[in-house]
């Protein structure tokens, strides 16, 4: 049997003395659309960052394809949160997508014709081929998010980690992003998405993990998103109970 695509083993992360994630054990064996769901401050983004070595872990290990990240970094694509960069930066949409090819190019080598063609194709896949020469700040939030997705596509990875790619995004961009992610899954890639919206989670993900600093539950979406599990995850967040009720109702309606 082949090694799991992504495995967290007993991962603990603390910022200073404040623990953010406790003893996360999570194994993803197969290509699928995998949602990481939980309330604000549950450590969802931190989990991705820990997997990518962007925050130090205080304990535990993360492996991709059964090996440490350093052995398979080229096969891992990443979409950070949109708010983490300065959108007034003097680069064009096409330039940003080209950045997905930089790791493959290595030190000091500049992108050539092949990289430019790949970048154009990736932009077309997210429906933005017409704005390649525009400065990135002149796009809408949803378009900016699609640029980040196109950059990840240009990484030509086997595992994709996306941090809130659907937050604050218009309906058309949401649909495009979801279609691209589903196509990646269908072509045998693992797509891990940090997601906060329970209503859409039930419809979009094949499998989910519910996280509230600890792993509450994980497995196929239909068996994990139960009222009991959601209550344990969102415990004490009264304003979310209404949303929770609607989410569960929606899930029951869709087959």
């Amino acid at each position: 049997m082949s090694a799991p695509l992504l495995e967290f083993h007993d991962v603990t992360v603390a910022y200073g003395r404040r623990p953010v994630l406790w003893n996360i054990d999570l194994t993803i064996d197969h290509a699928c659309l995998f949602g990481i769901i939980g309330p604000n401050g549950a450590g969802k983004s931190t989990l991705l960052k820990a997997a990518l070595g962007l925050v130090p872990t205080t304990g535990g290990t993360v492996t991709f394809f059964g090996r440490p990240l350093a052995d398979g970094r080229r096969r891992v694509g990443y979409v950070p949160q949109r708010e983490t960069v300065d959108w007034d930066f003097p680069v064009t949409v096409g330039d940003v997508v080209l950045m997905g090819t930089y790791a493959r190019l290595g030190w000091f080598r500049r992108p050539g014709r092949g990289e430019r063609r790949l970048a154009r194709e990736c932009l077309a896949r997210v429906g933005l081929e017409d704005v390649a020469d525009r400065q990135i700040g002149r796009l809408s939030g949803g378009q900016q998010q699609r640029v980040f997705l196109a950059r990840a596509l240009a990484q030509e990875a086997d595992v994709y980690l996306l941090d809130e790619p659907l937050a604050g995004v218009d309906a058309r961009s949401q649909e495009t992003i979801f279609e691209v992610l589903a196509a990646l899954r269908d072509s045998g890639r693992l797509v891990v998405v940090v997601h906060h919206d329970l209503r859409t989670a039930a419809a979009w993900f094949d499998r989910v993990a519910l996280i509230d600093r600890r792993l509450v539950a994980t497995g196929p979406t239909a068996t994990v998103l139960t009222p009991e599990n959601l209550e344990r995850t969102y415990a004490g967040q009264i304003e979310l109970l209404d949303e929770l009720g609607r989410a569960v109702a929606a899930r029951r309606r869709t087959p």
Partner: peptide, 16 residues
């Protein structure tokens, strides 16, 4: 190339 990448998106640069 490297300086621009790190200046624009250090998180993505580190992750890759």
């Amino acid at each position: 190339k490297e300086a621009t990448l790190v200046a624009f998106d250090p998180g993505f640069a580190a992750a890759s």
